[in-house]
Simulated assay, not measured.
Amino acid sequence: MSENDNKFISRNMYTGSRSRKPILGAIATAVFGVLVIAFGAWRYFSMTAAFDAGETVRIHRYESLIYDIAGFLGIGIVYLILGLLIIYYAYSEYKDKTKLEDKKPEQ
């Protein structure tokens, strides 16, 4: 075996079939980010509707701190930022993987 063959094997030995198509992982991660944003929008609108109707609004422990600082809008904004960060992560990981695939093997 040549040195290039050893480098190829070491780069690809422990990767699964998804590593051959990095777009699938990027799409799945980006869809998850969109779902986080959608959940945040639903959570914001359901909390404000319940509050306006005079009902008791239940918030989770981690949302309580955000609510104390910025109210219901702050909770919605945190979910929006978290979803956008996940989408950005999917994009940057996809770009990094495609850059690695585009590199020519050293000879």
Rank of each mutant, 00 (worst) to 15 (best):
Tyr67Ile: 07
Trp42Pro: 07
Arg61Gly: 15
Gly40Trp: 06
Ile59Gln: 04
Lys95Leu: 14
Ser64Asn: 11
Leu35Phe: 15
Phe39Cys: 07
Leu84Ile: 13
Ile59Lys: 01
Ala70Asn: 04
Ala49Met: 03
Thr29Val: 05
Ile23Asp: 08
Lys95Ala: 12
Lys99Gln: 14
Leu85Asn: 05
Leu82Ala: 15
Val31Ser: 13
Leu65Gln: 01
Thr56Leu: 10
Ser92Val: 15
Phe8Met: 14
Ala53Met: 08
Asp96Tyr: 12
Ala38Trp: 10
Lys97Asp: 08
His60Cys: 02
Pro105Cys: 03
Ser92Trp: 07
Ala38Val: 15
Arg20Gln: 09
Tyr89Gly: 12
Lys7Ala: 14
Lys95Ile: 13
Thr15Ser: 11
Ile81Ser: 05
Arg43Lys: 13
Ala70Leu: 11
Thr48Gln: 03
Pro22Gly: 01
Thr15Asn: 13
Leu24Lys: 06
Met13Arg: 15
Ser46Asn: 09
Ala41Gln: 04
Ala50Met: 06
Tyr79Ser: 06
Phe32Leu: 15
Asn12Asp: 03
Leu84Val: 12
Glu63Trp: 00
Gly74Trp: 08
Met47Cys: 04
Leu35Lys: 10
Ile86Met: 14
Phe32Glu: 00
Gly16Tyr: 03
Ile27Arg: 13
Asp96Thr: 10
Ala38Phe: 07
Lys103Phe: 04
His60Lys: 06
Leu35Ile: 12
Thr29His: 04
Tyr67Ala: 03
Ala70Ile: 04
Tyr67Asn: 08
Met47Leu: 07
Met47Val: 07
Asp96His: 10
Asn12Ser: 09
Tyr62Ile: 14
Asn4Val: 10
Glu63Asn: 01
Gly25Lys: 01
Gly74Phe: 03
Ser64His: 09
Arg20Met: 12
Gly54Met: 08
Ile87Asp: 07
Thr98Phe: 00
Glu93Asp: 14
Lys21His: 13
Gly25Pro: 01
Trp42Lys: 14
Gly74Ser: 02
Ile59Tyr: 05
Arg20Asn: 12
Tyr62His: 12
Ile81Thr: 11
Asp102Thr: 02
Asn12Phe: 12
Thr48Cys: 00
Ile59Ser: 03
Gly33Pro: 08
Tyr79Leu: 01
Asp102Cys: 08
Ser64Arg: 12
Tyr67Trp: 07
Asn4Met: 01
Tyr44His: 09
Lys99Leu: 07
Val31Gln: 01
Asp102Arg: 15
Gln107Lys: 06
Pro22Glu: 00
Met1Pro: 00
Val78Arg: 00
Ile27Ala: 13
Tyr88Cys: 09
Asp52Met: 05
Asp68Ile: 08
Ala26Trp: 00
Phe72Arg: 02
Glu55Ser: 09
Met13Val: 08
Pro22Gln: 02
Ala30Phe: 11
Leu82Trp: 02
Lys7Phe: 02
Tyr91Asp: 03
Phe51Tyr: 12
Phe39Ile: 05
Thr15Gly: 06
Asp102Glu: 15
Tyr89Lys: 13
Tyr89Pro: 03
Arg18Ser: 11
Phe8Cys: 02
Ala49Cys: 04
Ala28Gly: 12
Leu80Glu: 08
Leu82Thr: 14
Phe72Glu: 03
Lys104Met: 13
Ile27Leu: 15
Ser19His: 13
Leu24Thr: 13
Tyr88Trp: 09
Phe45Thr: 00
Glu101His: 14
Ala30Asp: 04
Gly25Phe: 02
Asp68Tyr: 06
His60Met: 14
Ile27Gly: 01
Asp52His: 09
Tyr89Ile: 01
Ser2Arg: 05
Ser92Glu: 03
Ile69Asn: 06
Ala26Thr: 05
Lys95Val: 14
Trp42Cys: 06
Glu55Ile: 03
Arg11Ile: 04
